[in-house]
Design a protein around this nucleic acid. Structure first.
Length: 447
RNA sequence: GUGGCUAUAGCUCAGUUGGUUAGAGCGCCGGAUUGUGGUUCCGGAGGCCGGGGGUUCGAGUCCCCUUAGCCACCCCA
């Protein structure tokens, strides 16, 4: 039965399908993130995609309320889809911190939704990989956060990247001395654009949009003029913040983080003090992190975060300070594609098994099962087609090795192991079971 | 949300001032004496020219609407 008119298959604006080739890479990165987070003792949690609307609104400004996907559910409840993982974490902490105790180290890798306009690397459905340490003021958590970012990018395969670090207290201190604290949000927003639009225009915007004087704007922007080694910058910052206890505290914290990172073996080239990064709205109160790929600074920060004084103040009277960061998986993947870090394979199975002799199906199945039992991923071709076609398929899909066996091999109790990269094949005996084959496969994969 | 650009084969794109059966490269499928892929050669399939409406004797080409993508602004928990 053919319908009169077909439904056009299509996806919503900002929502995408993920094909095997890109999905394999996604899952690989997610796996690395899990491994690194767990290596530092962060434990996984998950929260619902849907929350009560009242949980989600109010935390951000009118802008986020506009971007929130919200509707009435079948029971007449006002609900919304989570647009980040921080607000659900806040609610989660308020609800469960009594059971879990502090400090709580958790990570969450999940999809979020924002009804904002799309652009390259910006979608309406995307994935975040958050990790946070909550319930502690200790600077150790700030240091570990940076270490995790560092280890994570390294494990993914990046070599040249820069973690920019700042401390919000420095800026707060300077605004305090200039008596501009009440305009902090607007000023920060302008300051955040510095790298993008340049110093002069930033100054002009500060004067225009925030109503500060040229002199005040210059004093704020003096922070961005600092140059030299991290040590030099810290010394200069200390002078600039000399009149403010808050500013001095921030400077001291920053100094401690930077020296700890060096002691932990993070190369200096990958850590840069950047006292002009402001990171969003007035959410953060201490250390701030932004991570840029040296080859692709334009794509923006791929891993950002910071310290906050009170995560869950909207939901509980328990004060929960913390620090954390988030890897923007989709932006990262876009970057990896751009710098050609994606290896092209659309199969997860390293071993391909040619199904050549239709009479011997059971033998193929048995051999494949033996290999899988040894932890290998094996795809047996589904039809006894011509061997050339099967190898062509294996080649296109990116299998590394092919096991070739026909009546000739079965009769002599052997099989061929063909390396699809080099084209060379080895004849191996199956007389003593699959062990020799398995050992050879492992050896070839290791090369 | 505002503005600009774009939409033609699976992908990247040609397509003259509107004019007959819309092309290329790559990919895909098949073949080159039937047990060995990536190179080469030959052949083949595959297009409501994003969708809808309009102008015209005639629209892939011009106009309007719509959907989607890219860019800028905005914003970025």
């Amino acid at each position: 039965m053919t319908p009169l008119s077909l439904i056009p298959p299509r996806t919503l604006k900002g929502f995408r399908d993920h094909l095997p080739e890109s999905m394999l890479l996604r899952e690989k990165i997610i796996g690395i993130a899990r491994r690194i987070y767990q290596a530092y003792g962060y434990a996984p949690i998950d929260t619902p995609a849907l929350e009560y609307e009242e949980i989600l609104i109010g935390k951000g400004g009118a802008e986020t309320d506009k971007q929130l996907y919200r509707f009435e559910d079948h029971g007449g409840r006002r609900v919304g889809m989570r647009f980040d993982l921080t607000v659900p974490l806040a609610r989660f902490a308020a609800q469960h911190i009594g059971d879990l105790g502090t400090p709580l180290k958790r990570y969450q890798i999940a999809t979020v939704w924002r009804g904002e306009n799309t652009q390259r690397g910006r979608y309406r459905e995307f994935m975040q990989c958050d990790f946070d340490t909550i319930g502690t003021q200790s600077i150790v958590a700030d240091i570990e956060t940076a270490l995790v970012i560092h280890d994570l990018l390294l494990a993914i395969g990046f070599d040249r990247f820069t973690i920019r670090i700042n401390n919000r207290k420095i800026l707060t201190g300077i605004l305090e001395t200039l008596d501009l604290l009440d305009r902090a949000t607007e000023i920060l927003r302008s300051l955040d654009k510095l790298a993008k639009i340049g110093r002069e225009r930033t100054e002009a915007e500060m004067v225009e949009a925030c109503g500060v004087s040229h002199k005040q704007a210059n004093q704020i922007l003096a922070l961005s003029d600092l140059a030299g080694s991290n040590e030099d910058i810290l010394d200069q910052v200390e002078k600039l913040t000399a009149d403010s206890p808050t500013g001095l505290e921030g400077t001291a914290q920053l100094r401690q983080v930077v020296s700890a990172l060096e002691a932990a073996g993070v190369p200096n080239s990958r850590v840069r003090l950047d006292v002009s990064i402001a990171r969003g709205l007035d959410y953060y109160t201490g250390t701030i992190y932004e991570t840029f790929l040296d080859a692709l600074p334009d794509i923006g920060s791929i891993c950002s975060g910071g310290r906050y004084d009170n995560l869950a103040g909207l939901y509980t009277r328990t004060s929960l300070p913390g620090v954390g960061a988030s890897l923007g998986l989709d932006r990262l993947l876009a970057a990896m594609e751009e710098v050609n870090m994606v290896e092209k394979a659309s199969t997860p199975a390293e071993v391909f098994m040619v199904y050549f002799d239709a009479e011997r199906l059971n033998d193929y199945l048995k051999l494949a099962a033996d290999l899988r039992a040894a932890g290998l991923r094996v795809e047996l071709y589904g039809e006894p087609k011509k061997i050339g076609q099967q190898l062509k398929y294996a080649d296109r899909r990116g299998h590394s090795l092919a096991v070739v066996a026909g009546s000739r091999e079965f009769e002599s109790g052997t099989c061929q192991l063909k390396n699809l990269r080099s084209g060379k094949s080895l004849a191996l005996s199956l007389a003593g079971g699959p062990d020799e084959l398995i050992a050879t496969i492992h050896k070839q994969l290791a090369e």
